[in-house]
Design a protein around this nucleic acid. Sequence first.
DNA 1: CTAGACTGATCCGGTCCCGAAACGGATAAG
DNA 2: CTTATCCGTTTCGGGACCGGATCAGTCTAG
Lengths: 116, 116
Amino acid sequence: MTVELKPVQALALWQNVVLETVRREGPDLSSRQLAILLTVYLTPPPHTVRGLALSLKVSKPAITRALDTLGQLDLLKRKRDEADRRNVLVQRTVKGSIFLRDFADLVSDAAGRLDA
Amino acid sequence: MTVELKPVQALALWQNVVLETVRREGPDLSSRQLAILLTVYLTPPPHTVRGLALSLKVSKPAITRALDTLGQLDLLKRKRDEADRRNVLVQRTVKGSIFLRDFADLVSDAAGRLDA
DNA sequence: CTAGACTGATCCGGTCCCGAAACGGATAAG
DNA sequence: CTTATCCGTTTCGGGACCGGATCAGTCTAG
């Protein structure tokens, strides 16, 4: 079963969700930060700085900084790869899981209210 | 007919779209800028700085600056309200319409490819 | 053991955005 | 006319982020 979403509905959905996240208090993530967060949680590990930089087509410092802020928010954490200590593995956190679950519900609900 | 979108599908959809916009070249809009753009195009006019600030729950200077950059990108334009010259009316542009149409297609296509 | 390759982090100069406060122009009230 | 109010913009100091270059630490090939 495939999901049918017409362009005009897509815009309305996006508006509802973006408007809600802008109005909400708390950390508002940049597109890059959100892209990293979603990639780490939806794509099979391992996730490294270099890999993420390549995947998002942005520079390594950009990834490092995004991991700093996402780590500070406790949405993600870093861990040295003991097998190859040059690598840093990006891992999930409980808080990050909750954040994304809530966000998923927000989008899902907005989709349900689409044409009333 | 209502749109059914389960939370896990919502996340996948968001990842596809955000990842694509991050990878793409060109202007990457902040959430606020996108929220303004969508509001102006999807909500009946008139749209004023004060009204947008109230709607998004952000300060007026934030709206002014966002309009500066969106105007520079030609996605939106300002117009003095001749009836009350204190007001600034925010209006659509051709380029903005095209931008949102393309974006809507991007989301719509991503939704169609959800569970293949 | 050493030279080179590779990883993520840091430094650097610069750009963009933030909200509070102050500002000038336009309108409304006295 | 004068004062008060409303509107959007600008100013201000400060914070976040940008990519290129560089760095220290780690691994690997000769």
